[in-house]
Design a protein around this nucleic acid. Structure first.
Lengths: 225, 225, 225, 225
DNA sequence: CATGAATGAGAATTCATTCAT
DNA sequence: GATGAATGAATTCTCATTCAT
């Protein structure tokens, strides 16, 4: 009866599943690499750092990956795809633009909460290492922006959002805001000493704040619109 | 008589001085380094890359800088310092918060216009490269965030901005938005085929859009506040 | 009762036994190693290359051989020994020097026909790989040259061969000629598109040509001797 | 007055010029590589071995060559070309086939005398290391065989050589004989303890013997042709 | 017997830094 | 000042060998 093993299968319903026991060694390496890349950057990371983080001999890394760059490429390939699917699901759901944006923000922040290194690598390292013009990756990253822009556009069409703002610029504001908030969280600039139990709550609150600003702005009384 | 040298001194009253004829070789190296660091990251950049970009022999780099790290450090020291002063001037000026934010956005975007790599290096590299995070630099970067937060706070006190939003989170939204907009401009994701002459105008427009969103939000009719 | 194993013993009475069905795995590895060594050289060959050529997992190689060097050593031991015996039989047979030389040439060429890589490895690799030239092996290789020289010397004594030529140099000419002919056959420089059925005939013809040249020379009318 | 330096220039009238003082470092590396490759084989040689032999830091090797393989390729490229030219000159000269063959044999043996490692690398290593099918190299090696075959063919046409032997096979006999003689000289199988002064004479004698055998054969009284 | 994951010594290669010219 | 050859520490990568399954 190998039924128990079933529960060990990675469950795709969470973007950043916790590191369970007995995970495939390949996954262990990938996770270790994310961790290390996030901390030192791709170029600043040694393969031996990754191996140490993964708790294996560095030779084994080359058993699973052709070279260091392939690790990064794989991280992108495998993780970004899942992320995009989740965002896509949000973008096409039947709800208000505000709800969708909160969901996207929460998705990202939550992923950060569980795996802070995750997004950091995706956002900071991948473009820069892979010869700036791997069209496949460029396109994959662009897909995310398009999805957010799509949310904004449908919000405009539904009359929920202002139509005088270019959704393409607006999506940069939203995503950029999220990105820096996340970065600052990672860099511990934003203090968060609360017990782990409250973390989820805390991140949701931050997500709401970001969306609130992006939607209704900082101006008192809604500005002199 | 070193009189001639005087005119070569870098003048900190401009954040991103254009590449005039006869610039001091030291400056050329610094600019080249910024360019290269921004593209490949500090660790991913070779001294010979910098030298090639600067159009000199790589040995010469060591006439002006003790080593590679000192280049990065110098970039930070000299460029960031000037930048902070400019932001400080804006933050303490007598005008509305909105004006200040537009000024800051325009300052950054304009710097980017002249030297796209500039902020990228400052924000992304400096922390990661200096071992264990040089506290002095961390603080210096933090100073910028504090200045923006200060602008927001004084806007709240003056009743111009909502008081229900944490200015510390809000400043990340503002700066993060700016950063990503800039990055996308650099990466040519946002198309801009207009002649160079209109560039200044274009960037000012972008700055206004960012501030507009941050102040009055994306929501139609000011949201149901 | 390991009776079954008996039939697996390699029988040294054939220099290059054809690959029959159910050959001992050990033999398969040795043959694969010869093939691979011949192509890439000992140092250039990976154990995994040998295993792939043999169609087994590389770990299994270490069930049959202590390490890579032992494979080479074994090739030498087992194959060269049998070869020497065959040459010895020819050298001591009661016939003319010419017949003996044709036999030796045919022996080698035939071995090549069945296992082209064979001699190449023996001649090129063994000396170079064994640190500082294992004297035993050097001597064993030298034994072959001595046998050929012996054939030549007895031919001189019998008045069949010229006595004004140093048999030690002459044997190099003979063996060297054979070797290069073989190499060129392996490298497909000498074309041979005939069906496999004629191969034996073809190689015998080549053997005769080589001996013909070595015996009666290239010169028209026997030269102006 | 740097006149003396003139005489230090490498003189192209010798195939294997002695290593003069102050030779270009690149040449030094190349020569060292030849030496080391000849001794241990390409795969068995470490870059650091080459560097030590050349008396430089191993890093410098990469100043002049992209990688180890390029060294080998360069050796072939530069040395083989010169060799071919010399053979070509012999092949097209106005003299008997016998004279030409003696010249070729002497050329090679003499090159060996001056640089034993030279031919060894060319003959043994280059084919095997460079992915067996670098068409350019294959062709270049083939060119040598063609030149020898050409000598034989023109000898046949002039009635100097027998016409019943395939010149393409015959050239293998000649070249193969030379090759093995040379190898044995290198491997010190053929003893040669005579003072260096006699070396030239010795090698010329060997050359003559090889040609003698190839032309007039080993058989007494010219065989029963 | 078989397999191939795991290890780590060792070789190739990179690149910051020095230094003679 | 300028140049680029020279050096060698640090890293990446290879592959023989071991070992759990």
């Amino acid at each position: 009866m190998r039924r128990a093993a079933v529960s060990k299968e990675s469950r795709p319903d969470e973007i950043a599943p916790g590191a369970g026991p007995r995970r495939d060694k390949r996954e262990v390496i990938l996770d270790a690499a994310i961790q290390v890349f996030a901390q030192r950057g791709y170029h600043g990371s040694r393969v031996s750092d990754i191996a140490r983080e993964a708790g294996i001999a560095y030779g084994l890394v080359y058993h699973y990956f052709r070279n260091k760059e392939e690790i990064l490429h794989t991280i992108f390939e495998e993780r970004w795809g899942g992320f995009l699917e989740a965002v896509e699901a949000i973008a096409t759901s039947k709800t208000t633009a505000e709800d969708k944006l909160v969901s996207v923000a929460a998705l990202i922040l939550n992923a950060y909460r569980l795996r802070p290194a995750w997004v950091k690598v995706l956002v900071l390292e991948i473009q820069r290492s892979s010869r700036v013009t791997d069209p496949e990756q460029i396109r994959a990253v662009g897909r995310f922006f398009q999805l957010v822009a799509k949310i904004l556009r449908s919000g405009q069409e539904a009359g929920e959002l202002r139509r005088d703002l270019d959704p393409d610029v607006a999506c940069y504001v939203f995503i950029g805001a999220l990105e820096l908030v996340i970065t600052s969280l990672v860099l511990r600039v934003i203090r968060r000493d609360e017990p782990e139990a409250d973390a989820r709550e805390f991140y949701l609150e931050v997500a709401r704040t970001v969306v609130e600003i992006c939607l209704r702005g900082l101006a008192a009384n809604g500005g002199a619109r």
